[in-house]
Design a protein around this nucleic acid. Structure first.
Lengths: 147, 147
DNA sequence: ATGTTAATTGATAATTATTATTATTTAAAA
DNA sequence: TTTTAAATAATAATAATTATCAATTAACAT
């Protein structure tokens, strides 16, 4: 919880340092991004905030996500099915494990892929800047259901 | 080239075996998927085929991609920016190296991630079925340009 | 505290990629 | 050939995101 508060503050400071105003809507979006552990979608964020800001526009959520993303403070996870989710707590690339049944996303604690990355860079002559690794499968919960 | 021809035939046979008709449009789509090494987009396929079939409908391209994908004969690469590309030659998961400037996609010859996959499965208690690994960077060509 | 101003917002239109619909055509089997 | 279910072309519908623009407001300077 102390961590989440810190994430808020880090993101807000970054916004201020870059000359952006802190509106109540923006603050609310940052707080949700910082505290939610479940990789929320735009709609999840929108729905949550509408409780406090019934007039909140969906466009405002999109705009702020673009902004905060451009500052490097959230990680955008675009999936093959076209859906997007956001991680406001670990804004750097890290492997995810995704349940194809319940759509739950779990962060993996795998060591970094630096070794692989260097290998690939050498083989392809690319300057590698970023990577993305997802594992798709079925979580133990959904497995137990055996539907 | 013999390889490409073989890919054609493999996909066509798979279609026949599953009771699908081989129309000229379908054949053309398969041929392009089988011979193009550049991970074409739907539009690329559409544009190429329109040379031979000026009345080809875009929907036909989509329909056939869905079909061939459902037979496991092409790999769909949905990217974080929402774009989709298709690989008709290596329909199983393999790492890609993508240039963020010129959008070129190179197949990596990395060994499989089976080790990692097992590690992740054990740590998360998931049954892992699939994975996706992309490296993003700048290719040597774009690097040289130094724009 | 108040005024000023550029940034931000809300509302909604536009865009883009994909999917659905439907009348027509056609590949493949009888 | 004839038959028929599958496939196609044309286009409408959908869904997610982005653009537009008039109205509002946070932050700074009085």
């Amino acid at each position: 919880m102390a961590d989440h508060k810190k994430r808020d503050e880090i993101i807000i400071r970054k916004l201020r340092d870059n000359g952006h105003k802190i509106t109540p809507q923006r603050m609310a979006i940052v707080k949700i991004l910082a505290k939610s552990l479940g990789h929320p979608r735009v709609e999840d964020i929108y729905d949550q905030i509408k409780k406090d800001f019934p007039t909140m526009s969906l466009a405002t959520v999109y705009r702020n996500i673009v902004l905060i993303k451009s500052l490097g403070e959230i990680l955008e996870l675009g999936f093959p099915d076209g859906s997007n989710r956001y991680d406001g707590n670990k804004p750097y690339p890290h492997p995810h494990v995704i349940c194809i049944k319940c759509k739950k996303i779990v962060d993996s604690d795998l060591d970094s892929l630096e070794g692989l990355q260097k290998e690939v860079a050498a083989a392809t002559n690319f300057k590698i800047l970023n990577h993305r690794l997802d594992f798709f499968g079925i979580c133990s919960n959904c497995m137990a259901k055996k539907v």
